[in-house]
Write a protein that binds this DNA or RNA. Sequence first.
DNA 1: GCTGTAATTAGAATAATTCCAAATATAATT
DNA 2: AATTATATTTGGAATTATTCTAATTACAGC
Lengths: 143, 143
Amino acid sequence: MRLEPQYKELLNSALELSGQRATKQREHIYALLLQKRNHPTAEEVYVRAKEDMPTISLATVYNCLETLAETKLIRQVNFEREPTRYCPNLTKHAHFYCRESGEIVDVDLSDELLDELMKVLPAGFTAKHIEISYDGACNDCHD
Amino acid sequence: MRLEPQYKELLNSALELSGQRATKQREHIYALLLQKRNHPTAEEVYVRAKEDMPTISLATVYNCLETLAETKLIRQVNFEREPTRYCPNLTKHAHFYCRESGEIVDVDLSDELLDELMKVLPAGFTAKHIEISYDGACNDCHD
DNA sequence: GCTGTAATTAGAATAATTCCAAATATAATT
DNA sequence: AATTATATTTGGAATTATTCTAATTACAGC
Ligand SMILES: [Mn+2]
Ligand SMILES: [Mn+2]
Ligand SMILES: [Zn+2]
Ligand SMILES: [Zn+2]
């Protein structure tokens, strides 16, 4: 697994900006999230990370994921009480969770729609963030 | 604490419909959620429940909350990795979480807005449910 | 090559929730 | 009203995802 130069640059500058070091582990985990964008859990990231880096620990996986999330290179995605998942797609998007197949897909959101969502807030309320998740059956799974 | 007749009726029919029994504990917890609608956690419900029913157990609180949620008398509300909260407001609404004060307020959603949100899904996708949560500063807390 | 700091590591600790098996409450039947 | 069958409650143990801790290792600047 190789981290493409553009992303390597992105990672390095994000880490430098926040005064953190570029490590093999951080790079590896970032690369693996970019390569297969299926919103894996920390445990799943751990399993995949060990393939090329057998000595990495689960604690490090959690640490790296947290660092990447803090520096806004990835996003955390939560569904109800399930384990947190991780997503390297930085565009504004919601998530669709197919309960049938377990698949999670990105749903692009326009600025207009997000604007409308902001407008329905009561006066004096300002939202830094909106989280939207859909729950249902995907294209492959409808009956 | 007294459960108003309209809600008592609602509770009884919902439980009957799902083949479950009406118990003191279920009624008590439902009443207390309706009375103070501040999206409490299970632990908070437990504390309040014990005021009038000192022998109730935490396991029962969880059981009752699950039963009420299953029968759609209440909703579960999740914010990231925080403990689940419970809401007896059955209208379609989102939640605004003020990180400053910790307050959680209901945000009404029009059918039109929900329609628009459905329309942005890829073809072939059907959502049973949309979950929307805002995160920011409320009216009292902006600087 | 040393030195100071940051990051990784293995394992222990934590927190929310669920599970379990025994006791109790409720509803149905006699 | 007593009997029976089933559902619910209960306290405590178990589980699960995540965080914490303290020791080791890696790294950047001198
Ligand atoms: Mn995503
Ligand atoms: Mn609510
Ligand atoms: Zn599907
Ligand atoms: Zn506030």
